[in-house]
Design a protein around this nucleic acid. Structure first.
Lengths: 250, 250
DNA sequence: TAGTGGTCTAGACCACCCA
DNA sequence: GGGTGGTCTAGACCACTAC
């Protein structure tokens, strides 16, 4: 039974938009036209266009035809949560090296982010990741105690830890929460990335959770300047990104 | 007819989650239970929980009860697109000062971002924005030619330009696209924000579009370190944020 | 005022999870 | 195997847009 009907419709429409059949600003066919075209019910057609809307490709307002907002493709969950999958999807050569792997009691913040009791022994991993041979990101990750053994079993040049523990131990990330800000490079950051101390790094801290919402890892990833940009679309009916006040306002 | 039924249901469930009636990891009532509880159809109940899912509050998998993922509230479109509305929602005192307002031909990038012909005359605005009296953000915005007159008519201490031109000229932002990265402070940034040159700034570039997808403004906002963090939730079924390769990889 | 998208109903079948 | 969410149908009424 391959794919759902609404995904088939959405895929075809997305393809048409990406190919330029509907340029930015163009109006999409009406729901009734799509119903006729695809011999599907209105509910199914609406599911398809709702998907495109949530991707930021089309805009929707009551009473008016839907309009095309962008002509770019959206990434998958895996591509946001996994540096390796993202880079491979772009055809870049990724290499990773685990520089340090040690068990130690969780700090207060790590315990909170991982929803573990304080002083639970977590696994801390320091990792340098490169794109086409150039250092691009320093990753400092705390793995929950129950996930630690699977990570400890991996070779130190493992390209994708999340892929590996999904395959080897059935630990699959399904939900993520990301915090994005800018920080000055510390001594270790500067050394590993080959930049000057205090130069700007884009920081992505994130927690990945399994199917039941249990945190697997809490990570602090720092990108070399210019190597990565994040993007997000929003609208009056959907706002996925939040802005937060920093800890040190003044 | 105040609000839609599904919004009423979603609001009540969101409230319950935020108040801790369903802690993180807890399972929500089943759809059939909600149908009985609210005397609504299954479709309406599903619309409500789909909303919570898209907000990142609950996770959903076929065959299993929905689980609570977070206990925090999500912001509105206005709060992400408007610095003033965001800050006011937090109870912070916002002040703004337009330091420079000039018409000039659009650069190649500005023309592209604003979907205007090259060399169209746009309005460039330089603005310093403060939180509780402390400089927090430098904003450099290019307004499309057709929106420029409305902006030129505003006083230089106008707190929210988007609010003002919505009120005065009926120009309303409905869709946004945001690019987030880190850059070193330039001479002007350093001077205005009171930080050292080259110190890290969080940069949010964004375009705001009207109802038909026509770009109103293209802006480069730079935040003083520590003053702001962005956050986003994702899942295997919804990934609003993208990661992009930067322009200068090596 | 005709057409469009937004909301809602009441059924149905299926794939999947868990006890 | 019973319960759960995922998909789909075929209707209906309403609010809003565009002309």
């Amino acid at each position: 039974m391959g794919t759902a009907r609404y995904l088939e419709i959405a895929d075809a429409m997305r393809q048409a938009i990406l190919e330029g059949a509907f340029p930015v600003g163009a109006r999409l066919p009406s729901e009734s036209e799509l119903v006729a075209q695809w011999s599907a019910s209105r509910g199914t057609v609406r599911q398809a266009v709702a998907l495109l809307t949530s991707e930021g490709l089309v805009g929707s307002r009551q009473g008016a035809r839907r309009v095309v907002l962008r002509q770019e493709r959206r990434q998958s969950f895996a591509e946001l949560n996994s540096f390796a999958q993202w880079a491979q999807g772009l055809g870049l050569e990724v290499t990773s090296r685990i520089l340090l792997r040690s068990r130690r009691p969780a700090t207060a913040e790590e315990a909170r982010r991982l929803a573990l009791p304080e002083d639970t022994e977590i696994l801390h991993v320091l990792r340098l990741r490169s794109l086409d041979g150039e250092p691009a990101m320093v990753e400092r990750t705390a793995y929950a105690d129950w996930a630690a053994p699977a990570v400890e079993a991996l070779p130190e040049d493992c390209v994708s830890i999340m892929d590996a523990i999904a395959r080897e131990a059935g630990i699959v990330a399904r939900y993520g929460e990301h915090l994005i800000d800018a920080v000055p490079a510390g001594a270790q950051d500067a050394d590993l990335l080959g930049v000057r101390r205090s130069s700007p790094l884009l920081r992505q801290r994130h927690v990945s959770c399994d199917q039941s919402g249990r945190p697997i890892e809490w990570s602090d990833d720092r990108y070399r300047p210019g190597s990565v940009t994040f993007s997000v679309s929003n609208s009056t009916t959907a706002t996925p990104l939040e802005r937060h006040r920093g800890s040190r306002p003044a």
